[in-house]
Design a protein around this nucleic acid. Structure first.
Lengths: 218, 218
DNA sequence: TCTCAAATCCGACTTATGTCGGGGATTTCT
DNA sequence: AGAAATCCCCGACATAAGTCGGATTTGAGA
């Protein structure tokens, strides 16, 4: 069997024998929609690799507000922080739809890194890009209005003037990603519609006026 | 000369000969207060190590608002993102006081990492802890009130009920760190004073009621 | 020691964002 | 097909945070 493991960028540079070795220690698990894969505050070492499905990384406030740090899809790797530091998980990972995930023992990973510089390089690149993403999030939350954040997300996820939404990408989830509440996001979407910037359908958003949208970013 | 390089955690596990090799390629530079060391959007590869002084990593909005991502002191390393990704700098680094900084060529660094697993491990740990910090920042900005953020910072930077402020740690800088404006921070500080939680002096804050402060976190 | 610029403080006001109650529309499940 | 659960929409209101003008204090430099 030619595993998913050989396809994800994390392991793409490893020799075949190592991949097979990993595979022995790897565990395959299935998660249903809404199921919690990793719980904030707990300390489950080991690295997770997504074979199929979508998950979210998020934090909850005492008052029940949610902030999504990241959406994860096939090929993505998570729980790296717990593996490479002593700290417990700083966020929860929750399945947005039925997903299958591989789990690799912490020891296996750390040993491999010691002996395979290419893998180490890969890990470093992955962490760096995660930092990039988080800095963008901080910038959004601190320095931009909701409208501006929304405009950014729309422009980023657009493919020739269309933003097709995944089944799970409800306004609830989108709001949590932008750092606000559903009502406010809805208001912003509606405003864009009124201004003739977008056309809003249930599972699709068409961008009618890209330039106007770009201006919203500031 | 026994360089600063051998003392910073980044290089502490390298053999003496490598450290000497680095040192040959390293450049020492001085920066004055307010001087820009790294400019957001530019692309200057290479790793910086602080020998003395304090710097801030921050982003500016179009409207002139500032968000500090991090304060850096002696022994700290920065510009790692520019080194390990193709992206230009995502934030500026500015000297808060006269500082001296070492600069190491990008090639030198990347080669060393390939050949020294211990260094790679160090880099990974450093990036991971940076992620930890950024997640905390996101949590603050998205899910906490200003009072709550202030309480957190006070409790963190406290040493037996005293928070001694660096010369550069004005309310302006603190506000930029908390993701707000000076006026609002001042209001929050004043409120804590009125409530008898802290005692506010020019260069020192004494915490009078730790428990009350902890309650402010939520 | 005196002066000046920076830092802090303060009250009044504005605004973005959050909250709430509830009504309709769409999807999912039976 | 019908019922139930989401999801979406909307206006009225509440509030945290930001803005502004300006007074006061402090520390650094002449």
């Amino acid at each position: 069997m030619n595993s998913i493991l050989s396809k994800v960028s994390y392991f793409s540079h490893l020799p075949q024998e190592d991949i097979l070795a990993i595979q022995k220690n790897a565990l395959k698990r299935n998660f249903q929609t809404e199921q919690i894969v990793v719980m904030e505050g707990e300390n489950n070492g080991g690295l997770y690799i997504i074979e199929s499905g979508w998950l979210k990384v998020s934090k909850m406030s005492m008052s029940g507000r949610e902030q999504v740090l990241n959406f994860l899809g096939p090929g993505d790797v998570f729980n790296a922080i717990a593996v490479f530091t002593d700290h417990p998980n700083q966020a929860s990972v929750i399945a947005l739809e039925d997903s299958t995930v591989w789990w690799i023992d912490q020891n296996t990973i750390t040993k491999l890194i010691q002996t395979h510089p290419a893998l180490a390089k890969q890990v470093i690149a992955d962490l760096a890009s995660r930092i990039l993403h988080l800095i963008g999030l901080v910038e959004d939350l601190s320095l931009r209005t909701i409208e501006s954040r929304l405009a950014r997300v729309l422009l980023q996820s657009m493919e020739n003037s269309q933003v097709t939404r995944q089944k799970w990408a409800t306004q609830n989830e989108m709001a949590a990603r932008l750092g606000t509440v559903p009502d406010v996001l809805n208001r912003a979407l509606r405003k864009f519609v009124d201004e003739g910037i977008i056309d809003l359908k249930r599972h699709q958003i068409r961008i009618l006026d890209i330039d106007a949208l770009k201006l919203k970013i500031d």
